[in-house]
Simulated scan of single mutants.
Amino acid sequence: MKQKFHYATITQAIEELKKQGFTLDLNLKENQFLVGEQAYPADEFEIVDLYRYEGPSDPADESIVYALASKSGLKGLLVSGYGNSTDEDSANTLQQLHYKYLHHYGE
């Protein structure tokens, strides 16, 4: 599935996705998404859309904006930098979410 939009900047992507209801600021720790003190199992979420940004001179400057939705209707954003997941569980969780996204949209 091709993205309907490509936002020029991370800030623009975040602003536009918030207008679409992705208002929670999600943080990933191990296999959970955290919103403040509240924790949600990551496997309850799916990637609805994602936007990748790379620095002009260094691919290590990559950032990804994830628009995520849960089965219960929660919608939020996760912004992840290249190599930002410091623990193996977080890296595995993102990998599983990517797999479900690619499998679902046939990319």
Rank of each mutant, 00 (worst) to 15 (best):
residue 12 Q to G: 10
residue 12 Q to S: 14
residue 14 I to A: 14
residue 14 I to E: 13
residue 14 I to C: 15
residue 16 E to R: 11
residue 16 E to V: 10
residue 17 L to P: 00
residue 17 L to M: 12
residue 17 L to K: 05
residue 18 K to G: 05
residue 18 K to V: 05
residue 19 K to E: 09
residue 21 G to V: 08
residue 22 F to Y: 07
residue 23 T to N: 09
residue 24 L to F: 04
residue 25 D to Y: 01
residue 26 L to K: 01
residue 27 N to Y: 04
residue 27 N to G: 13
residue 28 L to A: 11
residue 29 K to P: 10
residue 30 E to V: 13
residue 31 N to C: 08
residue 32 Q to V: 14
residue 32 Q to H: 11
residue 32 Q to G: 07
residue 34 L to T: 13
residue 34 L to A: 15
residue 34 L to M: 15
residue 35 V to E: 04
residue 35 V to A: 07
residue 36 G to F: 08
residue 36 G to Y: 04
residue 36 G to A: 12
residue 37 E to V: 15
residue 37 E to D: 14
residue 39 A to C: 13
residue 40 Y to A: 08
residue 42 A to E: 02
residue 43 D to L: 08
residue 43 D to E: 10
residue 43 D to T: 10
residue 44 E to D: 10
residue 47 I to C: 03
residue 48 V to Y: 00
residue 48 V to C: 06
residue 49 D to E: 11
residue 49 D to V: 12
residue 49 D to R: 09
residue 49 D to A: 15
residue 50 L to G: 04
residue 53 Y to C: 06
residue 53 Y to W: 03
residue 54 E to C: 11
residue 55 G to S: 13
residue 56 P to I: 10
residue 57 S to P: 01
residue 57 S to E: 08
residue 57 S to K: 06
residue 58 D to C: 10
residue 61 D to S: 14
residue 61 D to K: 11
residue 62 E to G: 13
residue 62 E to A: 15
residue 62 E to Y: 06
residue 63 S to N: 10
residue 63 S to L: 09
residue 63 S to V: 07
residue 65 V to G: 09
residue 66 Y to S: 05
residue 67 A to T: 04
residue 67 A to I: 03
residue 68 L to V: 03
residue 70 S to R: 01
residue 71 K to H: 02
residue 71 K to V: 03
residue 73 G to L: 04
